[in-house]
Amino acid sequence: MRIKSWIALTRVSIMDFMQFRLSAFVMLIGNIIYLIVIYNLWKAIYASVDNATINGMSFNDTMIYLVLASAQFTFMEAYLVWMMSRSIQSGKIVLDLLKPVPYSQYLLFGLEGGNICAFVVTFIPTFIIVEIITGGYIHIGINILFYLVAATLGMLINFAIDFFVGTICLYTQSTWGINIMKEVVVLFLSGATVPLAFFPETLRKIVMFFPFHAIYNTPLTFLTKGPELSLAESFIMVGEQAAWAIVLIILGKIFWKLSERVITVNGG
């Protein structure tokens, strides 16, 4: 029964995405411009040092990592906190709560279709372009499979964090500030702005204790360091992600249950 409603919600969100085809195209263009900027910037940066690899990252590694991180952002970031805070402010949330599906699932599957479409329309073309520019630098094999699993788990973790932060909006009624803070913290600590490999040793150790690196760093490692990872290592990385996903989803659920009571809607 549940699965039927999940599929229905996913289908609706896919159709919703199709309405805005042009925006996906513009997103892809934006990604390509970003690719050009990043390519030139890091080429200039690597030109200023003698050795080809820094902290185990070559120019190709860094470029692929950052470009695909940005492409991953376009399909992973569903702006859930914006959505939740807007429906809290407008009172639409009351209608969503009346749906016969738990609110978290309603949100997750209502966004998933868009994520899948954005993956196909923006991530895959960007991936192909990167692969051509670097002359097939990304290893294609079992690691692609691991990437898909890791990206899905990363998306779940991102969703769980968003859901948690969105629930905070019930209390603060500040939306922009909370949103931007979450975005900055997640992007920075997940290694989407600067690859974690460049972080100073102690900072990197601290960051590894947080779930954020599992959103960007773990999936992208499968693409940049694909052939160097053993099967056991790969399973440990994915397992860690799965553990984080479960913990965060449970925490989010508990927090939401406790907070549901404070919803106040002015008028109707």
Binding site: Q173, S174, M181
Partner: peptide
């Protein structure tokens, strides 16, 4: 509070 949180976010 919104002003303060936004300022910190910025």
């Amino acid at each position: 509070s919104d002003f303060i949180i936004s300022m910190i976010g910025m």
